[in-house]
């Protein structure tokens, strides 16, 4: 039963990657500056563009908004999860 194309293999990995990112991100003790956080986010978007969506997933962006452009959404959500997890636990600033 098809709900909507994006659900097919895209949403579950994204959510799972986010949760795993939080779980592992709590092990980071560095508190990141705003500039570094921005750098990591931008680099994750670039990397997600390079990796493209896994095969057989109807990407949220590719095919809906623009043809032949797809982002590996699990990568971006995992990065965001790691950052969120490190904020939850972060106690020490890395000079």
């Amino acid at each position: 039963m098809m709900v909507f194309p994006a659900a097919m293999g895209e949403i579950t990995p994204t959510v799972v990657a986010f949760l795993l990112g939080i779980a592992i991100g709590t092990q980071f003790v560095a508190r990141l500056s705003r500039r570094t956080t921005l750098l990591i986010l931008v680099m994750s978007v670039v990397a997600a563009f390079l990796f493209e969506a896994p095969i057989h997933t109807w990407s949220l962006l590719g095919g809906v908004l623009a043809e032949h452009v797809s982002f590996a959404l699990p990568f971006i959500s995992a990065t965001i999860g790691l950052l969120v997890g490190s904020v939850l636990r972060g106690s020490r600033r890395l000079e």
Partner: peptide
């Protein structure tokens, strides 16, 4: 400036690999 971002991106890449296990 780049070691910590690289470490974080590597971990994200690992999570991408494990979530895409059944497709790739």
């Amino acid at each position: 400036y780049f070691a910590l971002p690289v470490v974080i991106l590597l971990v994200s890449y690992g999570l991408l690999v494990v979530t895409g296990a059944s497709t790739s």
